[in-house]
């Protein structure tokens, strides 16, 4: 995953540089925001440093990252015995990739604080480092998609799903989530499709319970 995240950090840094952001500003953004999709969305629409950009950037980051609310709820039971400080630290480092690893580890038994930090901190450092280097180098780095590197995360997510797949009651909610997210991705901008798909799948799980459970 570290090898895969670096090209995107580089590409983001180069994009930021082309929009007039300095390497220091890119480093500060990657280190404090740490959210790939939101940073790409904001920087792509970066209009220069004026007062309008403050509101635009903040609202874009909020909209793109709203899916984290549901991800936090889904992960909460795995960390309910952690101290508030540790949970707050986990939240800072919770991106799609580290969340996916944590939720699978939690479903296997206990999610340990040290285990999560061991997985998340190298990921964080790679993201900040590659984003900064990209802004410094900023030459034609090429498109990571040409090499298929953008497929790394879908591939890891598919493997994680395959390892989670052990109960027959996954079928319908997962199918509903897949259909809803694909449809939403075509109709809505940004990452709304994650929230739409997850909500549809969760509703299916809540109201599509087997008839015997309904009776009991």
């Amino acid at each position: 995953m570290l090898v895969a995240v670096a090209p995107f950090g580089l590409a983001l840094g180069a994009l930021g540089s082309s929009r007039g952001l300095t390497a220091t500003e890119m480093a500060a953004m990657s280190a404090t925001v740490f959210a790939g999709a939101a940073q790409f969305a904001v920087i792509d629409g970066w209009s220069g440093a004026d007062s309008a950009v403050v509101l635009t950037a903040t609202v874009t980051a909020l909209v793109v990252n709203l899916r984290h609310l549901m991800m936090g709820v889904a992960l909460a039971s795995a960390v309910r015995t952690w101290s508030p400080v540790r949970r707050a630290a986990l939240a800072f480092l919770m991106v799609d990739e580290t969340w996916a690893l944590a939720v699978v580890e939690g479903s296997r038994g206990v999610l340990r604080f040290a285990w999560f930090m061991g997985a998340a901190i190298p990921f964080y450092l790679t993201w900040v480092g590659s984003g900064t280097v990209g802004a410094v180098v900023a030459t034609s780095l090429g498109d990571p998609a040409r090499l298929g590197l953008d497929f790394t995360f879908p591939a890891v997510f598919i493997v994680l799903l395959a390892t989670m797949w052990n109960r027959t009651d996954h079928g319908r909610p997962w199918l509903v989530a897949a259909v809803a997210s694909v449809v939403a991705a075509h109709l809505l901008p940004g990452t709304w499709y994650v929230g739409c798909g997850a909500l549809a799948g969760a509703l299916c799980a809540a109201f599509g319970a087997p008839a015997d459970a309904e009776a009991g």
Binding site: R67, A100, V103, W174, A177, G197, A198, G201, A206
Partner: peptide, 8 residues
């Protein structure tokens, strides 16, 4: 169901 459907 949440973790699975988010991942999907």
């Amino acid at each position: 169901a949440m973790p699975g459907v988010i991942l999907v």
